[in-house]
Structure formats: C-alpha cells, structure tokens
C-alpha cells in the first residue's frame, strides 16, 4: 500500500487529472444531472400518489434505476479512461523515457490503472450523498448500498484492466479503444443476447438445466448487479436455469473476473518492456 501511495506515476497522474478545471466541471455536471434525475423522480412519483407521499417501494425502484444508470456509466466510461493510458504515452512519445527509469513495469501499470479509474471512483463516491436520499424514504438497507458500491469498484477495476491490457498490447489508442469497447459490449450486451438465445434453445428442448445460459449470466455484470438489487427475482431466474444454491452466481462472477483481471494485468506487466533475454525473431 505504501508503495502504491509513493508510486510516482500515480502521483503525477493525480496531479494532471485533478489540476484541470474540466475535471471538476465534469464532476459537477454529473452530480447535477444525478440530483435533477432523483428530485424529478421523487416529484413525479409523489405527484402520482394519492396522499402525495413517496413510498418505500418507490424509493427502492428509484435506487435500482439509479444503480443501473451508474453501472451503464461505468461500463461506458471505464474503457475510454483506460484504453489510451499506455498507447497514449507511446503516441505522445513519453513512454520510452518512462521505461528507461528505475520504475518497475508493475508499478507503472498499477499506477496507470489506479490513476485512470480514480476519476470515475471519485464520481461514484461523490454521488453517494445523493444516493443516501433513499434512506429518507426507506426500501433499501445501508448494506445493499455498500454491496452495490463495492461491486461498482470491482467492475471498474476489472474493465479498467481490460483497457490497460489492450492499451499495452496495441500501439494505436483508437484501435485499443475500439477493442476494449468491443470486449465490454460482448460482456454486457453480447452475453445478454447469448443468454436469451440459449434460453430459447433450452426451452425448445424442454431441458431444465442450461449451463450455457448460466455461464452467460455469470459473465454479465449488469445481471450480477440485478442479483444484488433484486435477490428474490434473481433466485427465481436461477431456479429456472436449474442452478443449485451451493455456489452463488455473483461469487462465480467475481472469481472469474478476478482471474481475468489478474491474467490481463500480468500480461500487461510482462509486455510493457521488451524481454531483453529473449532473442527477437530474425
């Protein structure tokens, strides 16, 4: 942890990122939009209510809606923030100089990963007071809010590592970005589509057990968020898929994502500098 805090890349990136007025303007506008959305939702729902009250069920619906919006935002912004951090340095011709310093490849990659997603983390943390409005109306426990927050951070790090991986491997930022967005799209919309297809196929075969559908649900971060927000509805779906309760899907998702993240970071660290010991191809 001490090494991470003393990481020069991290310190420099923080300085660059948070020095800019645009960053604070972006953050301010995001919080404003979120506030308007929440206040508007409360206003509309209470207008429709006969007593003019905002009920706990409505508060819960609002929280779920906000949570999905935030998840969409994370999945949309994370590739953009991370897919250019190494390739961008390469294009700006600052990477070579950085690589001749004593900093280890791991330190550079971790510094880049944490600093690039830090702004998104700040946005998420800054939105927490707005989220806390739900506590005024009930329907959501603080534990659920913390679980959702934890899963956001986890998702940011996983998709951030995908961005860093392509940024290290691909020389051009634009290609790294397209590839990262492609993988993100596959893990969200792609797995949702494949889940729907495999469900249709299993229904045609009257099979109660569908491992493919299970696999695609497990890979989908939006579905896992849904399982945190609506555990009852999700367990009904799990039963339909023939999933036992021994190993929850969210745990399978987290184990898989951690493995993917570790593998991608490991490859990024290895590929950042040339392997001087290996003779290059002649």
């Amino acid at each position: 942890m001490r090494n991470l805090l003393l990481n020069p890349v991290l310190n420099k990136e923080f300085k660059l990122r948070f020095r800019s007025f645009k960053s604070f303007l972006g953050l301010g506008l995001y919080l404003l939009a979120l506030s308007v959305l929440m206040v508007g939702f409360i206003f509309l729902e209470s207008q429709g209510s006969p007593m003019g009250r905002f009920r706990p069920e409505q508060s819960r619906t609002m929280f779920i809606l906000m949570s999905f919006i935030q998840m969409g935002l994370i999945l949309f912004i994370t590739p953009g923030l991370t897919a250019g951090v190494i390739s961008g340095e390469r294009e700006k011709q600052t990477l070579n100089i950085l690589l001749t310093t004593n900093q280890s490849s791991a330190s550079i990659i971790f510094g880049k990963l944490i600093s690039s997603v830090s702004f998104l983390l700040l946005m998420i943390f800054a939105s927490m007071p707005i989220y806390s409005i739900v506590f005024l109306y009930g329907g959501i426990s603080p534990g659920q809010v913390l679980v959702v927050l934890g899963y956001y951070i986890f998702t940011i790090l996983v998709f951030g590592s995908i961005g860093i991986f392509f940024s290290t491997l691909v020389r051009k930022t634009i290609i790294a970005m397209i590839t990262t967005y492609g993988v993100t799209l596959f893990l969200t919309a792609g797995t949702a589509f494949l889940f729907a297809v495999s469900m249709s196929v299993s229904q045609m075969g009257n099979s109660s057990n569908n491992p493919f559908a299970l696999f695609f649900v497990m890979l989908n971060p939006v579905m896992i968020l849904f399982s945190f927000l609506e555990p009852d509805a999700f367990s009904e779906l799990s039963n339909q898929l023939g999933l036992g309760s021994e190993f929850p899907l969210w745990a399978a998702n987290m184990v898989t994502y951690v493995l993917i993240m570790v593998l991608l970071i490991f490859i990024s660290v290895k590929k950042l500098r040339p392997n001087m010991k290996v003779k290059s191809r002649r």
């Binding site: 003393l6 020069p8 890349v9 310190n11 420099k12 300085k15 660059l16 020095r19 800019s20 700006k92 011709q93 600052t94 070579n96 100089i97 950085l98 001749t100 310093t101 004593n102 900093q103």
Partner: peptide, 26 residues
C-alpha cells in the same frame, strides 16, 4: 537517455517534470 523525438506531459511545470522523473528513479 535522451531520445531523438520525445513528448512532454501537458500541465506539468518544469520543476514538477523533473520531480516526477526523480521520483521514478527512487
């Protein structure tokens, strides 16, 4: 090492630029 073409970080001051690389060398 000083390469033939090199870039600099925008929004870093001269002192900060050197300080960053100094920190990178420990």
């Amino acid at each position: 090492y000083m390469p033939d073409f090199f870039g600099v970080y925008d929004q870093l001051k001269t002192v900060e630029y050197l300080d960053f690389y100094g920190a990178s060398y420990g």
